[in-house]
């Protein structure tokens, strides 16, 4: 009898797991809500559990920094001198750029930092690349926002709970990010492939890239703001063009969730302004 009961319950749970596997893959709102609510419960526990690892990581990083501080200091001084000269030149160009944009009424991209978050969990799986962060709808986070850190792009939010969100990393096989070549402005798509080196796709015919080329976000798709560092071309071969990302996705502590929108200044023409005012008054 006991054996029969065990077999029955095992069969029931196998069918349930199979049903979840088949129907849960469609990412319906019910499944998303279920996932985010469970994540909300465990994020505080994971946040506490990850503290020791963060401290150890911090100590290792500090030791590494101390070890290279003297050699780095010399090169940084030289770099600082050249940057000062470049700064003067770029500020003049920025003023010119601003003036010309105003004349052409070019839409300005507005980047909002919605929240800063701590990475509390990592999928640690070869097939699914995502992390959990400790910010959710309560902090203004929404689905489909860009997640970045000080080095570059990280990923985008795919599942948002009240106090936690899941971030799909740029290396995940489902990740697609519009990017461009920093020097030539050629637009391409960065495709995740579950390896640490995502690939570049849709390189226009006739265009060529070289190892070491810098890749930035293009701003298309309205998720990632333009000109954020993405990475560098490290390999061009039969398997495609591989990119080494600027952000170390295996070593994430804090990230920023950013929103991006285009704001166009209203065209100030008297013929369009007046009827609007009159209609407002008549409504009153």
């Amino acid at each position: 009898m006991k054996e029969l009961r065990h077999r029955f319950s095992s069969g029931f749970f196998i069918i349930l797991a199979l049903a979840l596997l088949i129907f849960g893959s469609s990412n319906t709102p019910v499944v998303d809500k279920f996932r985010s609510e469970i994540s909300d419960i465990f994020v505080p526990v994971l946040a506490v559990a990850s503290w020791p690892l963060e401290v150890v990581g911090g100590v290792i990083e500090w030791t590494r920094q101390v070890a290279i501080v003297f050699s780095e200091n010399k090169s940084l001084r030289a770099e600082n001198e050249s940057l000062k000269q470049a700064q003067t030149k770029s500020s003049q160009l920025a003023i010119d750029n601003q003036r010309l944009k105003k004349l052409l009424n070019v839409g300005e991209g507005k980047v909002n930092t919605i929240a800063a978050a701590r990475v509390v969990s990592d999928s640690d799986s070869p097939f699914f690349k995502s992390v959990l962060i400790n910010r959710g709808t309560g902090d203004g986070v929404k689905k489909g926002l860009a997640v970045i850190n000080e080095d570059g792009i990280v990923g985008r939010t795919i599942n948002v709970g009240t106090s936690s969100s899941r971030v799909l990393l740029a290396t995940d096989i489902n990740s697609r990010i519009p990017v461009k070549l920093a020097s030539g402005g050629i637009n391409m798509i960065l495709e995740g492939n579950n390896s640490p080196y995502p690939k570049l796709a849709f390189l226009p015919f006739g265009e060529k890239l070289a190892v070491g080329n810098l890749i930035l976000t293009s701003g298309y798709g309205m998720v990632f703001p333009p000109d954020l560092p993405v990475g560098q071309v490290v390999e061009i071969g039969a398997e495609g063009i591989r990119i080494k990302l600027s952000a170390k996705l295996y070593n994430l502590n804090y990230v920023s969730i950013v929103g991006y929108e285009i704001i166009r200044s209203p065209v100030s023409s008297p013929s369009t302004k007046e009827p609007d005012n009159s209609s407002r008054e008549s409504n009153k």
Binding site: L16, L21, G24, F34, S39, L46, D124, F127, F128
Partner: peptide
């Protein structure tokens, strides 16, 4: 089953994969 499902949720993998295999 519950432990496997929890692993699926927290790991971001397909819902039911670990639950099925662990069962």
């Amino acid at each position: 089953f519950v432990l496997g499902l929890l692993q699926d949720i927290l790991g971001g993998g397909p819902l039911g994969m670990m639950a099925l295999l662990l069962v």
